[in-house]
Design a protein around this nucleic acid. Sequence first.
DNA 1: CTAATGTCTCTAGTGACTAGAGGTTCAAGA
DNA 2: TCTTGAACCTCTAGTCACTAGAGACATTAG
Lengths: 139, 139
Amino acid sequence: MLSIGMLSQRSGVKVPTIRYYEEIGILKEAERSAGNQRRYRDSDLERLAFVKHARQLGFSLAGISSLIALQEHPDRSCAAAGALARAQRQEVQDKIARLQRLEVELTRISQGCDGQGVAAECYVLASLSDHANCEADHE
Amino acid sequence: MLSIGMLSQRSGVKVPTIRYYEEIGILKEAERSAGNQRRYRDSDLERLAFVKHARQLGFSLAGISSLIALQEHPDRSCAAAGALARAQRQEVQDKIARLQRLEVELTRISQGCDGQGVAAECYVLASLSDHANCEADHE
DNA sequence: CTAATGTCTCTAGTGACTAGAGGTTCAAGA
DNA sequence: TCTTGAACCTCTAGTCACTAGAGACATTAG
């Protein structure tokens, strides 16, 4: 049995985060020692690894909850899991596209300023004031 | 003079957000009508446009506060503004790089699932459980 | 003058944690 | 066995950038 500190170390998830996950039902309530401290088994470590990995991939905790529910009913169709993954992928692609447009503009803006002038004629500030300079429109 | 609703309409920033910006000092306190309603002039519209544009570019409100402070002291060097813009650009670039790694993996994961099977042998769930399948490592 | 719409303040909620206070339990060494 | 110090407990509150809602007051068009 692992203490919460050991679980944290092995999973790479911080102690308060583990308690938070329990609080919101992402992890089931841990068993307790005689002195009321949480005790975990390897299956908890596995679930935490699952959660961590999904979080790194940008899944929301709500989405992760759905995935966990699916895991616990292995007889159900996995169509929902596939749909979640595809939706997540689409979101990531959209985010990339948006960020790339921002990058273009930020590059333009930050190249216009050599840091030598005074704020009154600063290209950065002017650019931020005037959306019209933007080549691409960002929403 | 504009009411808060008119300012909202013209700027595209929601009414509660405008009040929030005033509360945290991003906008200075508005003048008031005889009946205590906020009244704005065109200069407020300009500042709000500035804030909105900077937000769209991913600047934090804290960063925007610095930029505004700079605007109000046009005699100061604009080096700080340039540095903020470059830091912001770097952040955007980092985010893009990270998201691109995620996209690769999410594509792999979601292609592995045709939605026909049951959860027990679902590739999506397996992939999320096992980080080892990842080709690239994401942090 | 009335009715509808707009605005006011205030509180509380969102997501995913993080920080801190003040108290208890555990494990290792003497 | 006792002691010490680290780890653990619960609870509250804070983060960021808003958003939602209640209940009361102001403005404006007809």
